[in-house]
Design a protein around this nucleic acid. Structure first.
Lengths: 316, 316
DNA sequence: TCAGTGCATGAATATTTTTTCACAAGATGA
DNA sequence: TCATCTTGTGAAAAAATATTCATGCACTGA
């Protein structure tokens, strides 16, 4: 068997190191190209040939593939975690992964295409990682009304993106959540707000997070828009997640929730129609919310980590 | 640039680890297969993809290639040496390399094909490394007359091969070197000897060593067939090497040397015609002799080590 | 502003690689 | 001994990959 290994290793070396074609190798050893091909496969299977790829940020490609196939995603980014890391560190790394998608999509934009931005920690992580050497005059549109005071929950994110892309920033001058459905109608009658919504509907790329109804990770709670009691009530109604300010259940349905009639921003049905979209979110606590979003088909791309994906798959 | 690396590494991972085709990868990232192919090449060039091959016996493929191209060889085996090793250890490893060639050629033999064997330490190293699980009824023929007492210089080598291959062994019942050309004629008139020569001419594979005129490595001296004075005289005539008992100069010419008319065995012109042949030899002291043999085209395959090849190339 | 230059890209093409298929040699077991 | 199976093989076909070539786009220096 040793001489077999020797042949496998020799053929593999000639192929991979000396860049010889399988025909050349076959000529030398009196083998058909078919056999050389089989030898290379065997050398690979037997571990004689080992291929190492140095990844700046490690993905878990298997999980990405699983997500893509299982939920019909266009693409997926699953950070491969290792050892102890804080939520913020992980989210940062995921943001860098997401940024590779963003930059790629933006690079291929035809002129005039614009980007829609929601808010939250996930969006912040992603847009922070965008390199700022692009001057593509790409406009940035706020996908939903303004929220809290923190940077991660504010139009500052959109402004940051606009600055990096050398484009304009269009804020949506309205609160995300109003007291009464009637108040929303008033806002929507306002031309500037209505235009904002139209602009949001026509973006070519949407960057969003995924919100959860768990107290410890709810941005609506953080922003003071909802109370613990509100969250609890929503949970009891069957709400398990939130995207673009819209609340949905574990099948990705949102029609029956009254709160959605008090939200000013892009509707989930419209979000679904945006040609490119990415959601950035992580944490076991968000698994259910992400699963609902996937089932609802609200995003075409998901950026997360392996911990979260395993939690999602366990739920499903 | 980091995001470029990220893309390179991701594409490479999908290709090499996930076994996706370039078309699949292209679909995912909106790239043409041409671009994916270029990305993979770049990832390779930039060292992001590293291919490691675990070799049972390390070769130097560059030097092998150089030998093949420069001297028109059919194949070459150049052991990659490292650290301190004795001549015997190295020759052993070279023998194992040579055995891979032998086994491959023998495996493809049509029935009735036979093998010719010379003698010397190189041949010994190679035939010792042949695995003995072949039962192919392949006959073994002695290529030249008998010599010394040591195993490495005796028909025992041929017998060893015959036993491993489950075939018969045909000795050449004559001394390799006789006193007078006339004595040789007597031997050659002997039917058994003549038949032996004919059998040697018709072998499909010849296994030989390469002899030097340097005192410290001459098998003729070791076997007591020549004295130091004889060697010195031959050197003065221009002899620089020996194969199958025939002496040649640095251009691989042998006609003008009287001693060759006293040798009983296969002639170099006949050796050249054997369809497969390998010579096993190593050592800087043998470099000149090997170079002469290569120039003479006496062997189709050479098994040696990097030290020796570098010495050969330095001479040439 | 604009021609010129270099670079990146994809469609088409050329080449290489893999797979399919049919066959032959050796192994297995009655 | 003979049928049967497995295994390995190369020719041919199919698929995948690399290259060529033409084009467009961004940058450069009038």
């Amino acid at each position: 068997m040793e001489h077999r290994d020797e042949l496998l290793a020799t053929v593999a070396s000639l192929y991979y190191k000396m860049n010889q074609s399988q025909r050349e190798i076959g000529d030398r050893f009196d083998l058909s190209t078919a056999t050389v091909s089989r030898i290379l496969k065997e050398a690979h299977d037997r571990g004689i040939v080992q291929i190492h790829i140095s990844m700046p940020i490690p993905h878990d490609f298997e999980l990405e593939q699983t997500l893509i196939e299982r939920y019909g995603l266009r693409d997926a980014y699953v950070l491969q975690t290792s050892g102890e890391s804080t939520h913020d560190t992980l989210l940062n790394a995921i943001g860098r992964l997401a940024a590779t998608y963003l930059e790629r999509v933006i690079k291929n934009f035809s002129s005039g295409a614009s980007i829609g931005v929601a808010w939250g920690t996930g969006v912040h992580a992603a847009v922070s990682a965008i390199a700022d050497n692009y001057t593509r005059n790409t406009d940035v549109v706020q996908l939903l009304g303004g929220v809290g005071e923190l940077v991660v929950d504010s139009p500052d994110l959109g402004r940051m993106v606009a600055q990096k892309l050398g484009g304009r920033h269009f804020d949506l001058h309205a609160p995300v959540l109003v007291e009464q459905p009637q108040s929303r109608d008033v806002f929507l009658r306002e031309p500037s707000v209505r235009e904002g919504i139209v602009r949001a509907q026509s973006v070519k790329l949407a960057i969003t997070g995924i919100g959860t109804m768990q107290d410890e990770a709810s941005s609506f709670l953080r922003a003071g828009l909802l109370t613990r009691a509100d969250l609890s009530a929503l949970r009891r109604q069957g709400v398990i997640g939130e995207m673009c300010g819209r609340f949905y259940d574990n099948q990705g349905r949102c029609d029956r929730f009254e709160i959605n009639r008090r939200i000013i921003g892009l509707e989930l049905d419209d979000l679904r129609k945006i040609p490119q979209s990415i959601a950035i979110a992580r944490g076991e606590v968000k698994a259910q919310a992400i699963l609902g979003a996937l089932r609802g088909g609200f995003t075409r791309v998901l950026a997360t980590d392996d911990i979260t994906v395993r939690a999602i798959l366990a739920l499903d």
